[in-house]
Design a protein around this nucleic acid. Structure first.
Length: 300
DNA sequence: AGCCCGACCTGAAAGC
DNA sequence: TGCTTTCAGGTCGGGC
């Protein structure tokens, strides 16, 4: 399940494969992969063919590369997206779950396959505009050009241009459960269900607590924990909980065995030994230690 | 405007 | 054993 660290690992691999190359052709095997593209697969294929690609940029879980026709090719992994240079020839039958394939020249790979079991991932073209704060749009390039498709996505926790003070204030304006706020990519981007639970545990805050009841210090601790966890996961190649996340070489990360709460409901808390609990919050599982993270009184 | 929630999707795992 | 149901989660869009 790719969150920020997994997306960054993929971005680094994609940058080596795509930057400076020319797209000779494109095949889309599943229409859902181009569902956000105006005109669907046909228009994506038509507009990308012959385009030259720039650096690969990432903000939160959104990735893109600027193309020579003035647009950005958006690449989102969704739940299960993988990019693999499988050295396929045009017309070769797709491998299992292969949804699209780029044919490239001028780079190290002749083809790049987009493999996506659950089809939550997407490829599409988006117009761009300069960032409002005048800082680079994301990680991987100094360009200010931010795709419209990612303009509603806030800067992420590993972005040097993130304003932690403002984010802290904004989070505490919300009456929603803090975990819901962390998962809202328009307030802070990069968190998914795994790292949100991990950061809340490290900060000792229960996810059902209303964000507006938290102190500035508590929110700062959550954000700091998020930064440290994501950096550590990045250094381990990310978290692979199942076979759904791998890097461009097909390798899985090893951070899963460092997880403190996610996927450990019913097991002992690594801090205090108390049995970890799980509740449903925002239709997602929230795993926590009732001893280390005091649940709110109104918890059902 | 902000927030909640259903829909989308597939395959593994659990239930019967 | 085999069929059915449940569960997992990132994002979008409808609706309040």
């Amino acid at each position: 399940m790719p969150e920020l660290p997994e997306a960054e690992i993929v971005r680094r691999g994609l940058a080596e494969i795509l930057a400076g190359t020319k797209i000779e052709g494109l095949e889309v095997f599943h229409p859902r992969t181009a569902r956000y593209q105006n005109g669907g697969s046909a228009q994506l294929t038509q507009q990308l063919s012959g385009a030259h690609l720039d650096a690969v940029v990432r903000r939160g879980k959104f990735m893109w590369t600027l193309t020579s026709n003035g647009q950005a090719l958006m690449m989102h992994l969704g739940m299960s997206g993988q990019f693999r240079p499988l050295a396929k020839q045009a017309g070769e039958a797709p491998v299992r779950h292969e949804r699209a394939r780029l044919y490239l020249s001028g780079g190290p790979a002749q083809s790049l396959s987009f493999i996506d079991q659950r089809t939550f991932g997407a490829l599409y073209l988006s117009p761009t505009a300069n960032t409002e704060d005048g800082a680079p749009a994301g990680c991987g390039s100094d360009s200010l050009l931010l795709p419209a498709g990612a303009s509603h996505i806030a800067r992420d926790l590993l972005d040097p241009h993130l304003d932690l003070v403002k984010v802290n204030q904004r989070i505490r304006k919300s009456k929603s459960p803090i975990k819901n706020v962390l998962l809202n990519q328009s307030i802070i981007s990069g968190f998914g269900n795994i790292y949100a639970d991990e950061a809340l545990f490290v900060a000792g805050v229960h996810g059902a607590r209303s964000a507006s009841t938290l102190t500035r210090q508590q929110v700062a601790q959550i954000l700091q924990a998020g930064i440290e966890i994501m950096e550590r996961s990045l250094s381990r190649g990310g978290t692979s909980f199942d076979q759904l996340y791998v890097d461009v070489n097909g390798s899985a990360g090893t951070f899963a065995d460092e997880l403190l709460v996610y996927g450990r409901a019913g097991q002992a808390c690594r801090e205090c030994g108390h049995e970890l609990s799980s509740i449903s919050l925002n239709k997602r599982s929230h795993v926590y230690c009732a001893n280390c993270q005091r649940p709110p009184r109104n918890l059902k």
